[in-house]
Amino acid sequence: MESKTKIWIKAFRLRTLPLALASIGMGSFLAAAEGKFNGAIFSLCALTTIFLQILSNLANDYGDSVHGADNKDRKGPIRTVQSGQISHGQMKTSIFIFSGLSLISGLGLIYISVGLNLQVFLFFLGLGIMSIIAAITYTSGKIPYGYKGLGDISVLIFFGLVGVMGSYYLYAFTLPLSFFLPALSCGLFSTAVLNLNNIRDIESDKKAGKFSIPVRIGRKNAVIYHWALLLGGLSCALLFVVLNFQSYYQLIFLGTLPLLLRNGKAVSHQKDSLKLDPYLKQMALTTLLFAITFGLGMLIS
């Protein structure tokens, strides 16, 4: 029998954390390439992002159990609320705790970065509250937006544009337009992780009334969509290099191409949903590796 600690760690879904750190890493590398890196800001960015990701995972565990998406037909790992390892009440409490931790960490981050600049402070506070609400309401609440097929848009925004550009701004206090391209890359790759997850769960989601993109467009079109996300993310990064070329070191991130191709081929050819599951972790790690290699290329150029 698993210990309570192991059960909670399973509920945290630690394999998703590399994905959460990718956007923060990208924003931080872009700042470092311009000599604007700050260790305290990075630490609080990373901590806040980790809290938000765990919050999202816990709320997802709770919400999918309540709304029926976690059921006996689901092919992924068994969730803790669904299996009775964690009660609804305990999971609700954990959601409140991690909401508070995310808010406290975020407040510290904003203060360290912008100080008492009230206008900027309030803007980022609002952004932080929106992030908490988005994390919770993806599958929880009366009208979870994940059940309407809007999760992809949310991931693109928060794991791409907000994560990269928001963290970069906290270092540099500017928003260069060209940096939206690597931000989109992170967002598109992160959306690919969600799409893979939804392809894996397509049958159980149908039965639960969860109208994810793969449920709406069918598996065949969802595979095409997956390739579009992978190639779109890569194209945005390449376009950035073309527009801001300094040296060929900027192309180091192309080392992740075989991993992206491997992921796309698995989604295309693997019909067994259970065998698709490992590629969620693979795509999350590939996204983090992409952010690191892209950032290193910027640093040494």
Rank of each mutant, 00 (worst) to 15 (best):
M1L: 13
M1V: 12
E2S: 05
K4M: 12
K6M: 03
I7G: 07
I7P: 09
W8D: 04
I9T: 06
A11L: 13
R13N: 01
R15W: 13
R15N: 06
L17Y: 02
P18R: 05
L19Y: 00
L21M: 12
S23I: 00
G25E: 04
M26G: 01
G27Y: 06
A31L: 11
A33E: 10
G39H: 07
G39L: 14
F42S: 05
S43W: 06
L44C: 06
L44H: 01
L47F: 14
T48E: 04
T49Y: 04
D61P: 08
Y62L: 12
Y62T: 05
G68S: 00
A69P: 02
D70H: 07
D70N: 05
D70V: 05
D73K: 15
G76C: 09
T80M: 15
S83R: 11
Q85G: 13
S87I: 07
S87N: 03
Q90S: 15
M91H: 13
K92N: 14
I95M: 07
F98W: 15
S102N: 13
S102Q: 11
G106S: 12
L107M: 15
I110G: 03
Y111S: 04
S113L: 07
V114M: 01
V114L: 10
N117R: 06
N117Q: 11
Q119V: 14
Q119I: 14
L125P: 00
A135F: 08
I136R: 13
I136A: 11
I136D: 04
T139W: 08
S140F: 10
G141D: 06
I143N: 12
Y145N: 00
Y147W: 14
G149Q: 02
S154G: 05
L156P: 00
G163Y: 04
M165A: 04
Y168N: 05
Y169F: 15
Y171S: 03
A172P: 06
A172V: 15
L175I: 15
L177K: 07
S178L: 09
F180K: 01
L181N: 09
P182E: 11
L184Q: 00
G187C: 09
L188W: 04
V193F: 08
V193E: 03
L194K: 03
N198F: 11
N198L: 11
I202D: 02
S204R: 02
A208S: 10
G209R: 07
G209C: 15
F211G: 00
R216G: 06
G218I: 06
N221R: 15
V223L: 01
L230E: 03
L230R: 06
L231E: 09
S235I: 11
C236W: 03
C236S: 12
C236T: 14
A237S: 13
L238G: 03
F240N: 05
V242A: 12
L243K: 09
N244W: 09
N244I: 12
F245T: 05
S247H: 10
S247P: 08
Y248R: 06
Q250Y: 11
I252V: 10
F253W: 09
T256E: 10
L259F: 10
L260G: 07
L260P: 10
L260V: 11
H269D: 14
Q270A: 08
D277P: 01
P278G: 04
K281A: 15
K281W: 00
A284E: 07
L285T: 08
L285N: 08
L289Q: 00
F290H: 09
F290W: 13
A291E: 13
A291P: 13
A291L: 12
I292C: 13
I292N: 04
T293E: 12
F294T: 03
G295M: 05
G295Y: 06
M298Y: 13
I300S: 14
